[in-house]
Design a protein around this nucleic acid. Structure first.
Length: 221
DNA sequence: CACCAGGCAAGTA
DNA sequence: TACTTGCATGGT
């Protein structure tokens, strides 16, 4: 590991924070709402998820008991605005069904277990992939698991900071080996990368005009 | 109207 | 292991 690779992530964080300021953007008040939001926002814009959350709240469904009681088909209609609503209704039911069967419905106790075991259990649940799992670990359990998303993959491969075929687990390891295991830092870093992705790095082949330019291209990992 | 955002599971080879 | 397809909305 050479010096420039070691310095890349801390230096990038400083530059993003100076340019964009604090983000602290995950819109949820409780661990329960983090879980619901994490599932609803899969491959979906947050504005569409907010509509669903509001509707759930208006109908008194933002509780484990209410989600347990409502039929899957009725739940699906209420989260329609989030897209993929039949799948997501099934995933919500699966998550809280698992919690009932294996943890007596105790979300806090589930989230309190060792981080690596929590991650493995989450990844074994229907509808929970790596990004959703890490979002739940970081924002609901408040444990330091770095959340990689499509923006992060795109930004890092386009800048040549990682090999083109780098996928989720490898990029997560890259962050976690280079940064201190710090929950507020991981939240802020993820928020900054999402913001950067929204601003400049969607469909464009290069990040011309983005806050990172000019940036010295760093050798691959 | 066309197009876009941006995870996961299941099926294929 | 790696690639493909289905799932669905609201905003521009």
């Amino acid at each position: 590991m050479n010096h420039s690779r070691r310095a890349l992530l801390p230096t990038l964080y400083d530059r993003l924070f100076q340019t964009l300021g604090p983000q602290t953007w995950w819109p949820a008040d409780t661990p329960f709402e983090v879980v619901v939001g994490a599932i609803l926002t899969q491959n979906t814009a947050w504005r569409n998820v907010r509509i669903s959350i509001s509707l759930l709240r208006e109908n008194g469904l933002l509780s484990q008991g209410a989600l347990r009681a409502i039929p899957e088909g009725e739940l699906a209609l209420l989260i329609r605005s989030s897209g993929y609503f039949n799948q997501k209704a099934r995933r919500l039911k699966a998550f809280f069904g698992h919690l009932d069967r294996h943890w007596q419905g105790d979300l806090n106790r589930f989230l309190s277990q060792d981080m690596d075991r929590l991650r493995i259990e989450l990844l074994g649940m229907h509808g929970i992939g790596p990004e959703t799992a890490d979002s739940i670990i970081l924002y609901a359990a408040e444990k330091p698991s770095f959340v990689v998303d499509a923006y992060t993959l795109r930004i890092f491969s386009r800048h040549g900071w990682v090999p083109g075929k780098t996928r989720y687990e490898a990029l997560r390891r890259f962050f976690m080996e280079a940064l201190p295991a710090d929950v507020p830092l991981f939240k802020e870093y993820h928020g900054l990368l999402v913001r950067l992705g929204h601003l400049h790095c969607r469909k464009k082949p290069h990040c011309s005009g983005c806050p990172l330019e000019p940036w010295p291209v760093t050798p691959n990992v």
